[in-house]
Design a protein around this nucleic acid. Structure first.
Lengths: 108, 108
DNA sequence: TCAATGTGCAACCATTCGGTTGCATGTATG
DNA sequence: CATACATGCAACCGAATGGTTGCACATTGA
């Protein structure tokens, strides 16, 4: 699923808006697919907390997981990440354009 | 102030992670500097709610406000927006690199 | 087989969050 | 000056959030 309305991007940003979750994203991006147990080591919170965070990230479409034996492996899903980036681009762009119009209006 | 550590970006994303706040950012980016009263019209929440959201956005460095007569005017601050975008780029980039290494390892 | 490992589920808890209402204050404007 | 307008401050409220603990269940491996 992709971001349709401006406010549609909110859940993605909300998912990224927690330090622990951002740390998980970071470790997934640098370390590749990892199990919950691995992600928990040196994370500072319990395994269940990490599992919850992964659920939140998954619901925002930022991460995808599957089962391998007794462990559940998770990997990064970059599509929503790219869409969030695109949204920030759009906002910045509109703002620059608005500044340009204001400048033109003042200088006329 | 700029984003230093990965988790340092969390407050910025958290600020963007609310639909109402994202709507405010949107209107500021397309409509230029606006007063609280103006931002409130057609927003769906009370004026005080909008004021609170602007405070949150300001604390995240996404918005800047000043007083003009009896109204307080707010405008978008694009620096943090750009940094957030940069952070998303970095995460995606690291992930692509990790995928590349994995591919090389599998194919060797 | 049996113990260790990795998860999932559920209950619980304190804090934060988004929102409201009420009231006081400052500023234009007739 | 009196009124309308725009905001700030503070208290309050229900719901969501981030976290924990305890226990049950599946899988691995000696």
């Amino acid at each position: 699923m992709s971001i349709r309305s401006p406010q549609g991007a909110a859940p993605v940003f909300a998912a990224l808006g927690d330090p622990t979750r951002l740390q998980v994203v970071d470790r997934l991006s640098s370390g590749g697919p990892s199990s919950i147990a691995v992600l928990t080591t040196g994370c500072g919170v319990s395994r269940q907390a990490v599992a919850k965070h992964l659920r939140v990230l998954a619901e925002a479409g930022l991460v995808r997981g599957w089962r391998r034996g007794r462990e559940s492996v998770w990997e990064l899903e970059t599509r929503q990440l790219a869409e969030a980036r695109q949204y920030l681009d759009a906002v910045s762009g509109q703002w620059e354009a608005a500044l340009g119009r204001l400048k033109a209006f003042v200088e006329q």
